[in-house]
Amino acid sequence: MSETLIRTENLKKHFPLTGGVFRKVIGKVHAVDGVNLEIKKGETLGVVGESGCGKTTLGRTILRLLDPTSGKIFFEDEDITEIKGRALRKVRMNMQIVFQDPMASLDPRVTIKNSVGEPLVVNGVARGRKMRDMVLELLEKVGLTEDHLNRFPHEFSGGQRQRICIARALALNPKFVVMDEPTSSTDVSVQAQTLNLMKDLQDEFDLTYMFISHNLSVVKHMSDRLTVMYLGKIAETTPYDIFRKPLHPYSFALVSAVPIPDPQFAGRAHILSGEVPSPISPPPGCRFYPRCMFAQDVCKVEDPPLRDLGGGHLVACHFAGELDFGKSAQMEYADSVEEAVS
């Protein structure tokens, strides 16, 4: 369990921004800005954050679908930041991704058999009849049948498509799968089904997940550890229940914004003031200070490092552990539910 599968060192991904008469680079979007991350074998790392905080870019950069601007990526202690061609393909056989929009991630003109079988064919694992058998096996694992083999994506429902995408990601028997908001485009009932399927598959194939979502409840349900991202940086990484013990003010704000199915506790969300600052020119110092209710002078100048507060609970806040957020409505609600149960 403790062996590290993926590790990033100060990983940065900046997108150039062009403008002016000659399309010169006039700025850059700091999508991922210095992320240190460790994912252990067999665990699920949840990544949450608002839209545009760089979580999807982080996932893609780790898989080398995007080339990092700087920093290093290690896969099983091997530096894969610079590798190309055959070596990259070999590493990619071990790292796969499931995208957010299952409709868009399946080629509309290719049958399911060939879509799912494509990784097998291009990597020379299997062709023809052998490929068909392997694909069928995969489809059965995700709950589809032989009838579905020769159909086109448009003949499936959203949930089915997502399962097909999962099957494709698993085709090469990878070690690491990035789940990029896999359930955000399906409705809740299908969502639960898919999530459970993913958990089952994780046990069966001994997979390591990086689970990206903006939905805190879903991430909490799926993950062993949880990382909160804000403006391209990690705010907090916790192995504990984030609902009970948020240490970063941003995490607390996120937690308190989760809707509660009980009117008694509603209306007490700690709503953040202001907009997310532009990732083109992020604020100096702590990225969160313009919106932070506990901001001090030091936050404006000094970027807080990620500190370990014990038990692998990493927080990037100057005052982590010293702040008193009070009890969030969510926490009270959870307590009340527990009480009611007991």
Binding site: L63, L65, R89, R92, M93, M95, Q96, I97, F99, Q100, D101, A104, S105, L106, D107, P108, R109, V110, E118, P119, V122, N123, C165, R168, A171, L172
Partner: peptide
């Protein structure tokens, strides 16, 4: 996205161009 999916599964440029992009 499906182009990116194909790339992540290791398909070469020419394969992506001829069997995914052009037919579409």
């Amino acid at each position: 996205l499906y182009i990116e999916a194909a790339r992540s599964s290791g398909a070469s440029d020419s394969r992506i161009l001829f069997s995914h992009i052009l037919p579409n």
